[in-house]
Design a protein around this nucleic acid. Structure first.
Length: 562
RNA sequence: UGGGGUGUAGCCAAGUGGUAAGGCAUCGGCCUUUGGAGCCGACAUUCCCAGGUUCGAAUCCUGGCACCCCAGCCA
């Protein structure tokens, strides 16, 4: 995945481990999602990192569901996550695992810890545990149940497993140190009683392991060498190590890196869920969502996301990545491989008054100037055309090189035209342009010497395919959506114009046959993708993936700011 | 007021005692039948701050400051 020679701090650690043969030359990573939501671009970073490392070192990469909480997890999420990981290129081969498949082994290990006097059954309820845990500055108090005999603990824990006790009535706790400065080490809970249906285990288990207890064991069982996770688990690493050492089992190394933050969007499951449930977007796969399904539907390629993840690097510094990085990644990818096409998004009718009525021509257009092998195609041309409304100004501002009364412009792959007359309706709206064309300026003919300031795109009116096109913009108005006034939440920063639906765009004929998922560059407008849900050959619907870099828009913006 | 982390350009990010890589963004110029792409150039006398060590410090030492994480039977 990575073609870069840059070495991040994680690879440095691995290089050192390889040198000392710590894991006998093995490198084995994993991506351990909890199936309680859809994957987003932050997860993509983790997948690319873990898979990229495994691949670079000739190692292995596992997909493992960390499904230890039956109350939030669902099969629907399992399916979508598997699909997304594969789409992103994370190849776990036959290594698809579930933490819940190790429940019996974990249970046996818990029994071991009890026998070693390192775990005990505690009858305190959640509130009581919280009260006795102490605070950041004060040590906690030991549970009155801490010194039960091994026999009693064994008996009680076995009965917990049999389902004899109600939810929350008891827990199994590790016996570590209630005075530890690290709160995670103050006799943490290993098992809680939850009588709930598990998406894979059904009703087999009335007790469920906590993350800290389960995670290292899962890594150990799978022979993971480097267990890469995000920064908030740094405080948990001593506990990760303690469990594995107490058990005396194979011990992977946990390494933490800073999670991804992207400007103008949110990447927390809770907030993403809020957007969906509050109907602020059409669903998890709304093309404005930073989810993997969202980007996929928007038209992003997996390669562009891989490149993006590679470019942003890996470190322990919390940061907010500029969205222009992501946009650059998809433009760079699609520039090289997207088929070009002409599409008029906001049509303005043009009549070439000196072009013979009834005549049509087939003009040759290049499919991709960046790729000679992409070939050419024919586009019909005639007397009645559509051009972009933005490509005409009755009163042209400074530096405006496009059409205006009396000026000329080149029609891409066709002729040079001159605007002779502006037709308006009774309300004063421009409805039509009367232009003349110069038959001697056909594209490809020797028109050297004739300089035209700009070239605009067009579509033959009688041949045009009508289509809906959706223009997407950033979902939030602020780079940090959580930057809000007192009493408001991130939803108040939602961009009301993040979606603009254009109902009647005019496309060149070839576009009418687009298959769902096909990507094109609409010349001068941006990259577009035929929607995978709503588009059909014959009745296309396009999503704008990203605009082209637009120098004119910048000039105009600057003019407005003055 | 405990513990664990992090501070290099607008945003990322290399740099590991020898004189601040690279990318994105931005700004110029060239080129252009996409105001796209491409090409060329500019863009940190300085690395959170203050002292110290050294011939030499972003790198080492001391002392500050700022921000993030931790008091779920979530992950």
């Amino acid at each position: 995945m990575s073609t870069d020679t840059r070495i991040d701090f994680i690879r440095e650690i691995i290089n050192e481990d390889q040198k000392t043969s710590k894991y006998k030359g093995r490198v084995h990573t994993r991506f351990p999602p909890e199936p309680n939501g859809y994957l987003h671009i932050g997860h993509a970073k983790s997948i690319c990192l873990n898979y990229g490392i495994a691949k670079a070192y000739g190692g292995k990469f596992n997909l493992r569901f960390d499904d230890t909480n039956p109350e939030t997890e669902e099969q629907e999420y399992v399916d979508s996550i598997i699909n997304d990981v594969k789409w992103l290129g994370g190849d776990f081969e036959d290594r698809l695992f579930f933490g819940s498949d190790y429940f019996e082994q974990m249970y046996q290990w818990a029994l071991d810890l009890i026998k070693k006097g390192k775990a005990f059954v505690c009858d305190l309820n959640a509130d009581q545990i919280r009260e006795s845990r102490g605070t950041l500055t004060e040590p906690g108090k030991e549970s009155p149940f801490r010194n039960r005999t091994i026999e009693e603990n064994l008996d009680l824990f076995q009965r917990m497993r049999k389902g004899e006790f109600p939810n929350g009535s008891r827990t199994l706790r590790a016996k570590i140190d209630m005075a530890s400065r690290n709160i995670n080490l103050r006799d943490p809970v290993m098992y809680r009683i939850v009588h709930a249906h598990h998406h894979r285990q059904g009703d087999n288990w009335p007790i469920y392991p906590t993350y800290d207890w389960a995670h290292g064991l899962e890594d150990s069982i799978e022979g993971i060498t480097h267990s890469i996770c995000t920064l908030e688990f740094e405080n948990h690493r001593p506990l990760y190590d303690w469990y594995l050492d107490a058990l005396g089992v194979y011990h992977p190394q946990q390494i933490e890196f800073a999670r991804l933050n992207l400007g103008y969007t949110v990447l927390s499951k809770r907030k993403l869920l809020q957007l969906v449930e509050g109907k602020h977007v059409s669903g998890w796969d709304d093309p404005r969502m930073p989810t993997v399904v969202g980007y996929r539907r928007r038209g992003y390629t997996p390669e562009s996301i891989q490149v993006f993840c590679d470019k942003i690097g890996v470190s322990k510094k919390e940061s907010i990545i500029d969205v222009s990085m992501l946009e650059w990644s998809i433009r760079d990818d699609l520039n090289k491989r997207a088929q070009r096409a002409m599409a008029v998004l906001k049509p303005l009718k043009v009549i070439l008054t000196n072009y013979p009525e009834g005549k049509t021509e087939q003009l040759q257009a290049v499919n991709n100037p960046e790729d000679e092998n992409a070939g050419t195609r024919a586009i019909p041309f005639g007397r009645e055309l559509y051009i972009e409304q933005d490509d005409f100004r009755e009163i042209p501002p400074p530096k405006y090189f496009r059409l205006s009364p009396g000026t000329e412009v080149r029609l891409r792959y066709a002729y040079i035209i001159t605007c002779e007359k502006v037709i308006k309706d009774s309300a004063g709206n421009i409805t039509e342009l009367h232009c003349t064309y110069d038959p001697g300026t056909k594209s490809g003919s020797s028109t050297a010497g004739r300089k035209v300031k700009s070239t605009i795109h067009w579509v033959s009116a009688p041949d045009a395919v009508s289509a809906q096109v959706r223009l997407y913009d950033r979902l939030f108005l602020k780079e940090d959506p959580d930057d809000v006034d007192e009493g408001k939440d991130f939803l108040s920063n939602l961009n009301p114009n993040s979606l603009e639906v254009l109902p009647d765009c005019k496309l060149e004929p070839m576009l009418g046959n687009a298959n769902p998922g096909d990507r094109f560059q609409f010349e001068r407008m941006g990259y577009f993708c035929a929607d995978t849900k709503d588009s059909k050959p014959g009745a296309p619907v396009f999503n704008r993936i990203v605009t082209l870099k637009d120098t004119w828009a910048k000039i105009e913006q600057r003019g407005k700011e003055k």
